[in-house]
Amino acid sequence: MRQILVIALNTFREAIRNRIFASIVAFAVGLLGLTLAVSAASLHEEVRLMKDVGLFLVSTFSAFLCVFVGANLVYKDIERKTIYTILPKPIHRWQFLLGKYLGVAAMMAVQVTIMGTALASQFWLLEERFSFVMVQAVWLIYVEVLVVSAVALLFSSFSTPFLSGMLTLGLFAVGRFADRLAEVRLKADAGEDQAVLDVASAAARGLSWLAPDLSLYNVTPYVVYDTALPAGFVAQATTSGVLYAALALGLAALLFSRRDFI
């Protein structure tokens, strides 16, 4: 446990001291500020628009940031050979990976908290209350980040940052539409081959099984209309996310344990 925490703390410290991280967070917060101006220009819809665009920005920036950091994470240590000085120490490879992941999770917690706070302060400026469902929505964005980070780490454990980033973004896109993909059943129009469409439909449904169901973490409609989430929804979505992240990390650890560091 101690080794995991040491790696996690160092990863967190590295990210926090990285100027790119600070710049991205500052930019995202600035963009949220712009939302306030845009919302103010829309008649009677400013609060709804701000909720919608605000949550979209928090979610998208968080996802892209964790893909960027996650995809570079392990690769950078291997490429720069830093890992050569760590793995020969009394630490298991899976502990190293888990430490890296927890470091990113801590960093992303800071990022989501900063953006969530910026969003809440805009509500305060509009004299609108920051509802409980809003807090739940921000929490679910964080759970989504945990899932995407684990997937990025999985790809980062065996491929280059570019490929890891692309694969993660691909899985992220599929995951966002997983609920719709699971229902895909294409019907052939005249002149089309139904067999081909059946294969395509099956592939789409297969992808929805492979990718994490990220649609669970987008509860913007509830926030916009200030409606309570169904009972147990947050706990269920959190459990699902944590299990998917654990699966991705387990697979990453397996691949990592067999790898030669040439």
Partner: peptide, 14 residues
């Protein structure tokens, strides 16, 4: 055991 790899590269932020 103590180990120093060839041409080491370390966490530069430390």
């Amino acid at each position: 055991i103590g180990y120093l790899p060839e041409q080491p590269y370390f966490y530069e932020h430390l």
